[in-house]
Design a protein around this nucleic acid. Structure first.
Lengths: 200, 200
DNA sequence: TAGATTGTTAATCGATTAACAATC
DNA sequence: TAGATTGTTAATCGATTAACAATC
């Protein structure tokens, strides 16, 4: 399945929250999500037939389907590694919670932080990574350590059996192909803006 | 110019930092950046001929070219709107600084924050947005307010003459086509992971 | 039935990769 | 000169959009 399709399904899932008790056509949904109507129908058709010809889609029904497709109908236990400013912000970001994501443990190597509880989450020493991931059945790792430490942390996560990594460190991470890696590179996003603005 | 090409140029720019005193071939550069060698040459060829046939590219020279192309050879004054946890983390993120990005002002509507200085940046009332942007010659706006406030803030930024917006709010923002908008949607990235993991 | 809108196929568009002549 | 590697064109691949028969 296409990365970009999945991205758009999340978008549809989000905008449908406002249409729970209504019917909605592919063109309305497209308008709300900022994409093409054909694309909406194509994206959905990869997973089933959710609409009624001549009528459109039922908001709540489609939303429930998308929730299942995206795997948001369950709890996801997350580990966050690197409780700096960004890590702290993510621990406290409430937007994740409503999608079933829950921070089950945080890790850092700073003695000042280990043992403390931030955002309701206990901070462990990184040496406890493997054991904690198994014990708490953690499925997703979020890397918010400095770039030079990130590849090693990624290896430790893979070693511990993690199959999904969200990496914020500005460095190339290599993972086996059965591990899904998503990079969020804030510097590169900002540099993209710089390019477009430089001749204004 | 393609969004994806620009993204990769930033990647090349980053990995070349380690190759400043060396020559490097398109295939080495591709390896470091995790892309195809033809793509490296194609990307670069859109902006000029920077290599020597039979030899490759000079690291420092190519890096300087990329710096100019990306507009990173100058200072960029940034405004951050919404000094919550994420806003605070970005204000204190040192990674932006080395690329010439500088937070010149922050804005919030909380009386407890207005007038304070965080990460070396003064927090203003949002009512001072327009005036401050003009006075400080701010070119880029970063939106880290809650979703429901984000569209209004975006309008204010556009009104103030901002031409580049980095939006972290999980909501669709509309801007005129002479304004470049980049969305960073953390929930959607995480939902993407959920999709790939759900059948494991 | 007539109108509307889906699901799906076909056409288009764009991006990536391969190939190779040019040339250091 | 021989070997290497660029810059660029051609081929391939994949994603988006348009079109339309199916059908509510």
């Amino acid at each position: 399945m296409l990365r970009s399709s999945i991205f758009r399904l999340s978008l549809y899932y989000r905008v449908l929250k406002e249409k729970v008790n209504e019917s909605i056509s592919s063109s309305e949904l497209a308008e709300l999500a900022g994409v093409n109507a054909s694309q909406v129908r194509k994206d959905l058709s990869q997973f089933g037939q959710f609409g009624i010809r001549g009528k459109g889609y039922k908001g709540d029904e489609l939303r429930r389907h998308l929730q299942g497709i995206l795997g948001l109908d369950r709890k996801w236990c997350i580990a966050l590694i690197g409780v700096g400013n960004l890590g702290f912000a993510l621990l406290n970001y409430s937007g994740f919670r409503k999608d079933g994501f829950k921070f089950c443990a945080a890790f850092d190597n700073s003695l000042a932080k280990i043992g403390k509880t931030w955002g309701g989450v206990k901070i462990h020493d990184i040496s406890e990574l493997n054991e904690t991931i198994h014990k708490k059945d953690i499925k997703i790792g979020i890397i918010t350590v400095p770039a030079r430490e990130a590849p090693k942390i990624a290896d430790m996560l893979v070693e511990a059996g993690i199959k999904g990594i969200l990496n914020f460190a500005p460095v190339k991470i290599d993972v086996p192909k059965d591990v899904k890696l998503v990079n969020v590179d804030l510097s590169i996003q900002l540099e993209g803006l710089s390019y477009y603005l430089k001749d204004n």
